[in-house]
Amino acid sequence: MIEIERVSLQLQGAQILHDISLTLPKGGVTALVGPNGAGKSSLLSLIARLSPLQTGSIRIDGMPVDATPGSVLARRIAILRQDNAVASRLRVAELVGFGRFPHSRGRLDAKERALVAEAIARFDLTDLADRYLDTLSGGQRQRALVAMAYCQGTDYLMLDEPLNNLDMRYGRELMGTLRRLADGDGRSILIVLHDINHAAAYADRIVAMRCGRVVAVGTAAEIIDADLLERVFGFRMRVESIGGRRVVLHHR
């Protein structure tokens, strides 16, 4: 369970987050949606202790993120940020192997290597395993990074816009993989998404944010509503029901 209590964030005078309180139960896929500048990534960074907490408290399974040793948290939460400038002179297999660092401290035995190989296979990277990162396309690199976060084997997996650079097929496959991780392995997925339809199709829970505040929390059926979405995104979009599923036609 992730408990966020009265969290605010100020960066150089600008108020990024306003007094956010939110409780996310363990398990399932939770999507953070909202327009640019809503504070989704900032909130995710705070939860994953990438930025220091200014006010309020955040606890993951009862552990305060600002007081728990980073090496302990690294075995509970894995985070993939949006902008990853990773050293390029690395092979895909090496990068994914870094995901095991919190457990192995760098010594990969047979069991650890099997886990790395499994992650590489799961994200369809077997053919690319020996390639250097700087020879990959943006989407291939993105998949390698997600595989590394997955390989960390944590209860909580947080991804900031992981669909960036992915084509439709791999975007769909990634969301399907995340869904299976939540259903089969009981992992909790927290994901920032831009495409509201992806959120509607795959998430158990949607948190809608705007201007540093949480506007609404609910299931896809509750959030995908023309009035609510207009309040969040600031423009009117058509919401249709196709085959029992809510679809947002936001393109035009």
Binding site: A48, R49, L50, P69, G70, S71, V72, L73, A74, R75, A78, I79, L80, R81, N84, A85, V86, A87, F98, G99, F101, P102, A149, Q152
Partner: peptide, 10 residues
């Protein structure tokens, strides 16, 4: 790797 990635790995 990068500061953020290192923090993420503990």
């Amino acid at each position: 790797l990068a500061p953020d990635t290192a923090v993420g790995l503990g």
